[in-house]
């Protein structure tokens, strides 16, 4: 895998999420921060998939990275973390999973349908738990470190 295979998808993720930030009415630099979070998350995911095993675990790690990034940005900019987290997680949300699940269902491939369905659920759960875990841990830790509240 050469470098371009890492850089291009992250660039597309960045641009796509900047677009989605506009839809969510994120003004100013916030929209770039969201895009960067998305690119970063996808980079972590790609690296994990290539050097560790299992894409569900990679999604978990990537979601944790996004969680940390969003919480830090939210505290620096003194804004709610909601927007950053939601937009940055978007490339990882299993849109493709939903699509393939439905396609196998329509084609009558029951085995593939069931395995894709379960895989999609697992992926989504890994995402939410990863993002949530960092939020909870940082929420508990940061006030003690005197880094200010959100």
């Amino acid at each position: 895998m050469n470098l371009l295979d890492y850089v291009l998808p992250c660039l597309w993720a960045f641009l796509a999420c900047v677009g989605f930030g506009l839809v969510f009415n994120i003004q100013g630099v916030g929209v770039l921060i969201c895009g960067l979070g998305a690119g970063l998350g996808w980079l972590v995911y790609l690296v994990c998939v290539n050097f560790l095993t299992g894409d569900i675990f990679s999604a978990f790690v990537a979601a944790m990275a996004i969680g940390v990034y969003s919480e830090i940005m939210a505290r620096i900019r003194r804004c709610p973390v909601t927007g950053y987290l939601q937009v940055a997680l978007l490339p990882l949300v299993p849109g493709a999973g939903i699509y393939y699940t439905m396609r196998y269902c329509v084609e009558g491939e029951t085995q593939l349908f069931l395995s894709t369905l379960l895989h999609t659920f697992g992926f989504a759960a890994a995402l939410s738990i990863g993002a949530m875990l960092t939020s909870s841990v940082l929420r508990a830790l940061l006030p003690k470190l005197r880094l200010g509240r959100e």
Binding site: W12, A13, L15, A16, C17, G19
Partner: peptide
Amino acid sequence: GYGMTTAFFSLF
């Protein structure tokens, strides 16, 4: 915004 999202996600 919508157009950008869909276009770049399809490249993605």
